[in-house]
Design a protein around this nucleic acid. Structure first.
Length: 278
DNA sequence: GTCCAGGATCGGA
DNA sequence: TCCGATCATGGA
């Protein structure tokens, strides 16, 4: 992967054809927002980034070469050939081809595992705009100020010191006790996220489900988005409908080692179209 | 007013 | 093991 430093921007050939709009708005992350000029601004790993696509180039703004090499190249998974994977997925089934063509260029962001765990605990029985609001209030209340109105995601150690009343301003309802339990288990090391990353999928899943408020769906999202386990396959209400309507003969195992990526295309298609064609 | 949102927990069959 | 009620909040 070749990159170039020009006028405080870092430019990369978009050879694997990432689509930022589809990547940020497919329900995997909650801290990226689109600006009027078409760029996106967000926070990850305690750093602010502005990013846009310019013809067939990716332009990283508001960052440094050091952060690009140590954080963003990995976060956007720039060394994995998603273009090839997308075409492989499309070959499996004609309906998979349909959903990849509907919103191409999605990639699975390599998010921080604690942030993904906490975010998807908040996501349960909730909608995406409200999830984003709760997470933003969580960061403003307990994260560290980076610059202007940007705050880091609070650490598990910070949240572990709090009680449910402290989380009342978030208005996250019954999920507050789940967040506290997750923070305490992670901060104490009772749940070791770094170790779970390397465990076999079924064992990793059951480890995560030792946390109160973490069931099969949240565990699967943590594995896929926070641990980059690309064979993890979260099934929510939309995925359940999509599997019944579009793929009645198929199971997640039929989608191969990149089933999680296939899942992301299916989910986004289902949510955008509301499955009116099926 | 009712229904729903990237669900999980609990108690009772 | 399975099923339904319930959980807190806000928008449609």
């Amino acid at each position: 992967m070749n990159y170039l430093l020009t006028k405080n921007n870092i430019t990369v050939e978009n050879s694997f054809k990432i689509n930022l709009e589809n990547t940020f708005n497919c329900g995997q992350c909650f801290r990226w927002n689109r600006l009027f000029d078409g760029s996106f601004v967000g926070v990850a790993f305690g750093k602010v980034l502005s990013i846009k696509t310019d013809e067939n180039k990716l332009v990283f703004k508001k960052t440094t070469m050091n952060d690009f090499e140590n954080i963003w190249a990995d976060y956007f998974d720039l060394n994995l050939n998603y273009d090839l994977i997308e075409r492989e997925i499309a070959k499996i089934d004609s309906h998979l081809k349909t959903v990849t063509l509907f919103s191409p260029g999605i990639r699975i962001l390599k998010q921080d595992s604690w942030e993904a765990l906490c975010s998807f605990i908040i996501s349960q029985n909730n909608n995406i705009p409200r999830i984003k609001g709760i997470i933003e209030r969580l960061c403003q209340s307990f994260g560290e100020k980076i610059e202007d109105s940007f705050f880091s995601f609070p650490t598990a150690q910070t949240i572990a010191e709090l009680n449910e009343n402290d989380l009342a301003p978030l208005r996250c309802g019954f999920r507050s006790s789940y967040i506290i339990d997750a923070a305490k288990k992670v901060a104490s090391g009772e749940i070791n996220l770094q170790k779970i990353k390397t465990l076999p999928l079924n064992i990793a899943r059951s480890e995560l489900m030792k946390i109160k408020g973490v069931g099969p769906k949240v565990a699967e999202c943590t594995l896929l988005y926070g641990m980059h386990r690309l064979d993890a396959f979260p099934i929510d209400v939309w995925m359940k409908k999509a599997m019944q309507n579009i793929f009645p003969e198929k199971s997640p195992a039929d989608f191969g080692k990149y089933a999680g990526i296939a899942q992301q295309y299916i989910f986004h298609y289902a949510r955008m179209t509301k499955l009116k064609e099926f």
